[in-house]
Design a protein around this nucleic acid. Structure first.
Length: 234
DNA sequence: AATTACTCCAACCGCTATTAC
DNA sequence: AGTAATAGCGGTTGGAGTAAT
């Protein structure tokens, strides 16, 4: 039992600590982290327990690499909101803000840096849908296309291809299974689907759904869960 | 084989916002 | 309304693993 004066542990978590924390959080609920830290007997701060649970132990966390679809969503929302990692994470079930933040720093920032080191050209993410998602390695397919079509002046793409902007129904990110699910549930959030509006340039990355009666930011996640789907990633 | 450079990600820190009293 | 405790967020750091030399 941690008492006052005991030194709190820091650094990597041991398996036994994970087990204790999981048991305690399951039993006591995902609140009152200081109490959980105390009652579990872990020599950790509540803050540390919360962080470990949220980023590593809680159920429903997805493991493995960020998929092409997820990467696209990250880019899209980062463009809209900037470094609002937690907010972006809410759009990616199973991913944590920490994970997304790390991913952005290691993968995306590198690309931005490269651009800033001389070859900067404003990107117009107008990719051809059939290239953005195809059978096989969707990651490389997406990366290939997003780079090859990244600006109007960039002629790396297949010979004779012309750049186009696509209207919503053929948006590239709606072609993935992941986004298809998004597309499925968004209209369901409105009782009157005719009220659902689509805003944006239709260039694939700068758009939004707006329902006058629904504020996505404030809506309860259980609403989304009950609709089926996004959490069902397997 | 040894060393160095680089990448990735878990974990920490400081600050702000929210909640409870 | 004021204050303390707690939760949440975003930035940063440190270390393990891997690649390059």
């Amino acid at each position: 039992m941690a008492c006052q004066g005991d030194k709190l542990r820091k650094g990597s978590w041991q398996e036994e600590e994970d087990e204790r924390l999981t048991a305690s959080a399951t039993l006591l609920g995902e609140r009152k982290w200081d109490s959980i830290a105390r009652l579990s007997g872990l020599m950790r701060s509540g803050k540390s327990c919360r962080m470990r649970w949220l980023n590593y132990l809680q159920p429903n966390l997805k493991r493995g690499h960020i998929s092409a679809e997820e990467e696209q969503i990250i880019i899209q929302f980062h463009g809209q909101w900037g470094n609002k990692w937690a907010r972006i994470a809410r759009r990616l079930p199973g991913r944590t803000d920490n994970e997304i933040k790390n991913y952005w720093r290691t993968h995306m920032r590198k690309e931005i840096q490269t651009e800033e080191e001389g070859n900067f050209q404003p990107k117009v993410y107008s990719a051809k849908p059939e290239l953005l998602y195809q059978n096989g390695d969707s990651t490389s397919a997406w990366k290939y296309s997003i780079r090859d079509y990244n600006s109007v002046d960039d002629n790396i793409g297949p010979a004779g291809s012309s750049l186009e902007h696509y209207e919503l129904p053929s948006l590239t990110h709606m072609n993935s299974p992941y986004e298809t699910r998004q597309y499925d549930w968004i209209p369901k959030l409105s009782n009157d689907q005719s009220q659902t509006e689509v805003h944006g340039e239709g260039n694939g990355l700068d758009w939004c759904f707006c329902d006058p009666a629904w504020n996505s930011e404030d809506s309860d996640i259980s609403t989304l869960v009950s609709l089926g789907s996004l959490w069902d990633m397997n």
